[in-house]
Simulated scan of single mutants.
Amino acid sequence: MIPQGHRERMPCSKLIAAIARRWLFAPILIVLAVGVAHALDFDRLLDRFLGLGGSAPVFREWQQLLTDAKSLGTKEKLRRVNDFFNRGLQFGDDQEIWGESDYWATLLETLAKGRGDCEDFTTAKYFTLLSAGVPGEQLRLVYVKAKIGGASSHVTQAHMVLAYYDTPEADPIVLDNLITELRPAARRPDLQPVFSFNGHGMWQGATGKAAAGGARTGRLSRWDDLLRRAKAEGFE
């Protein structure tokens, strides 16, 4: 099993105001090169994982998750992957885990540590679902303002979730480390989308229609860096 322990159920503490000001009114589309499932070299991945300090049983459980997913429908894949990381990873912030204020860990790094923040939960689920055959264009990483204490709360914190779109215009299903149950976005009034992205592009909010124009931010340069490091590990 992934290392167990009490996981703090809180959104990420990173501020979102500056991102919101820049992105709510400047939607963009950026074409990237990640999001197509391919056959993984598990021996290579295991060597890298062990080099990061991970244990073979943890890796084999993740590998078994992918093996089992081959015979599952998409909704069951979403549930299994969401549960795997929500139950197995402990929540922690980047400073205590990595000694940095904002570090985007690769899937293997997160598994090896057994800990992560909301971005790490989300990216780990994203790359696992890609590896399980879910098309990349149907998955979005979504920055949101999460209302602490429920939809009527006026207290918000920055948070990230993964969204699955059955069709481009569909109400997406939300995979969240705060709530284990998969829920459509319409049933998550506590989450206010700011912008979303994946290996194919970027969108204002979480709508299914992409919009063009605009410029990069420092936060998304971390996504670009993560894509490069994930590719180096063996995730195309």
Rank of each mutant, 00 (worst) to 15 (best):
K147C: 04
K145R: 11
H154S: 15
T167K: 10
P168K: 04
K147I: 01
S153V: 06
A151V: 09
Y164I: 07
G149K: 01
V155I: 14
A170S: 12
K145I: 05
I173M: 12
K145Q: 11
A163S: 03
A163R: 01
V161N: 06
A170D: 13
G149P: 01
D171C: 13
G149M: 01
G149Y: 00
G150K: 04
I173P: 02
Q157R: 14
D166W: 06
G150M: 06
A151D: 06
G149H: 01
L162N: 08
S152Q: 15
V155F: 10
T167R: 13
T167P: 09
T156N: 06
H159T: 08
A158Q: 14
H159M: 07
V155A: 14
V155G: 06
H154W: 14
G150A: 03
A158M: 12
P172R: 01
Y164C: 11
A151G: 14
G150H: 03
P172N: 04
V161D: 05
M160E: 09
D166A: 15
A158D: 14
S153I: 03
A151K: 15
T167H: 10
A146M: 10
V155R: 15
P172S: 05
M160K: 05
M160V: 09
Y164M: 13
H154R: 15
Q157Y: 12
I148M: 11
Y164H: 12
A146I: 01
D171M: 08
V161Q: 08
G150L: 02
T156M: 07
D171Q: 11
V144A: 03
H154T: 15
S152H: 14
